[in-house]
Design a protein around this nucleic acid. Structure first.
Lengths: 137, 137
DNA sequence: GTAATTCCTATTAAATCGATAGGATTAATA
DNA sequence: TATTAATCCTATCGATTTAATAGGAATTAC
């Protein structure tokens, strides 16, 4: 299941990308239009800022803005920050690899083989989708 | 993340498929060879039996056996029984559809669009993989 | 200096997951 | 028929994760 965090994060990024104006977008506005609990959204945007997708301006008339062109923001990057590993099992993860406790031989493991395929097909989607694709109608 | 339940279930099915003999395979044997807690595995095999993948024989010399040829057991079916919906969000699920509470218009939702693509690419893998593929070395 | 906003940390309630416990039922076989 | 060995069934538990809330500190526009 996709976490609410990721869902909200993607919606917020899309919202900001669609706004296009120079003035920063406020959390309150996003929360209202996308029906997201404001305090929860605050923490999500904070993560997105700390990982370099967003910039922020504090104080009155503050808010968030994109630090890169939407077409340069890949879903692989966003998903890894919000949702974590793209792979369904750590033993096939490219960025978060961990060996299985059980499983003496990965190459003989049927689950391993299957999950590599799933990982690759999902990666293929995320690698070929940018925030610009999401925010175009 | 893939649940342990699914992981163990897939390993168990593979183990049974590889055994090939006519005598039923016992939970204890699977648990031992695949390093799965036996009581947990019992409950998983029970689900797989109730959903028609496995048959069982009770009492001494009892155990589990496949009810279909491995090449006729699709990953789509197995995954739905063990892991639940293949889609990452209910609003793009073919078999477990639910409308989002928020999201007035699915077609305008960026998450929706993305998750349809992920669902389709994952489905493509599961539809083209059978237990026979998993159990072949 | 006041109002509005982001920033930060901690906490909580609920749900899910992985595993365990304890026996009831069934069947082979000595 | 008694014993043993296996599946079957229900309930429960502890740990983890998730989604959300709380409360204020820091910063900035005006």
């Amino acid at each position: 299941m996709l976490s609410k965090k990721t869902k909200y994060g993607l919606k917020a990024l899309t919202y900001i990308a669609r706004s296009e104006s120079d003035i920063p977008v406020q959390v309150g506005a996003i929360a209202k239009h996308e029906q997201i609990p404001q305090k929860f959204l605050e923490s999500i945007l904070l993560t997105l800022r700390k990982s370099g997708f967003l910039g922020s301006k504090k104080g009155k008339h503050g808010g968030y803005y994109l630090r890169k062109d939407p077409k340069d923001i890949l879903m692989t990057e966003v998903m890894r920050v919000l949702e974590g590993p793209i792979a369904m099992v750590p033993c096939v993860s490219l960025n978060f690899y961990e060996k299985c406790d059980d499983c003496p031989d990965e190459d003989a493991c049927s689950v391993h083989k299957l999950m590599i395929q799933v990982r690759d097909s999902t990666l293929n989607v995320f690698r070929n989708t940018t925030l610009a694709d999401l925010s175009s109608k």
